[in-house]
């Protein structure tokens, strides 16, 4: 046959080979692949390369508490305690009930004496939930309270169950108020807004935004702070222990949204 000449077969072979190779190459560069390779390098003790692959996976859109937690571990192994604490805390934002980053943060606290806004009592319980979960609870309880009340009042067929429906309505109203209070507490004390982590090893909080100002307190790496005012190269911060002070912007990283370790967002003027 005339179209089955040698050139045609060669070109077809090349095209077929490329068609088979492209997905393979894509797979090698996929976030999941980078994550898996990062795990393998971690096991081999190559923490620096492992961290790079994890960050690559993150930059490609992979966002999971496992990735953040593993990334924190690589920084810990490289004794970059500030970044380690930062990624552990980010893992906890994605999954507040994940026990591993919580335990590693305690290890870190034991090692470098980092400061944190440790929630206590009810706040500690609320900190195990995401804001979206509390909002969902509030919405569901509100609807159930409204629907049980409407059923008790207007559905004649369920009139013998009216007492039960009204009790359920009261219960759901109570849960709604509880959810409102929990959400308010969350937004006041636990929300990620304005929270930041000290990433530098020798950061200090000072009394004023000048280099020679007096020291308020030394901030161990991994310490958690809340930004009160963003003044460009300096940040006015809330420090655990009811303290406030000024710290250089380069010494901290915002907790959320997550950015790779080498891509800190530029300081914004107020």
């Amino acid at each position: 046959m005339p179209f089955l000449n040698t050139n045609f077969i060669q070109w077809a072979s090349i095209c077929l080979l490329l068609a088979l190779l492209v997905p393979a190459l894509q797979a090698a560069d996929s976030p999941a692949e980078a994550y898996q390779k990062g795990n393998e390098l971690y096991e081999e003790g190559k923490y620096d390369q492992s961290a790079r692959l994890y960050q690559k996976s993150f930059q490609q859109g992979h966002l999971s508490e496992e990735l953040f937690y593993n990334l924190g571990n690589t920084f810990f192994k490289q004794e970059n305690y500030g970044e380690a604490a930062l990624w552990y805390r980010r893992a906890l934002i994605l999954n507040p009930r994940m026990p591993e980053p919580r335990q590693n943060l305690r290890t870190l606290k034991n090692r470098v004496g980092l400061l944190d806004f440790e929630p206590k009592g009810v706040n500690q319980f609320i900190s195990h939930f995401r804001e979206s979960e509390l909002t969902s609870l509030l919405t569901i309880c509100t609807w159930l309270a409204v629907l049980s009340l409407a059923t008790a009042l207007f559905v004649k067929r369920l009139r013998p169950w009216r007492a039960l429906l009204i009790t359920a309505c009261c219960l759901f109203i109570g849960l709604t108020f509880t959810a409102i209070l929990a959400l308010r507490t969350y937004r006041k004390h636990i929300t990620v807004d304005h929270r930041a982590v000290i990433t530098a090893a020798d950061a200090i909080a000072q009394t004023s935004p000048v280099p020679d100002a007096k020291t308020v307190i030394e901030l161990p790496p991994g310490s958690e702070v809340r930004i009160v005012t963003d003044s460009g190269p300096w940040q006015y911060i809330d420090i655990p222990g009811e303290l406030r002070g000024w710290v250089k912007t380069e010494n901290l990283a915002p907790l959320w949204p997550p950015t790779p370790a080498d891509q800190k967002p530029p300081a914004q003027n107020p």
Binding site: Y35, Y42, L94, Q103
Partner: peptide
């Protein structure tokens, strides 16, 4: 004892989105 950190998680990650 909090002398060392826990090992990495190797299970299939739960991919989320911001």
């Amino acid at each position: 004892n909090f002398d060392d950190i826990l090992y990495i998680r190797k299970n299939k990650p739960h991919n989320r989105s911001i």
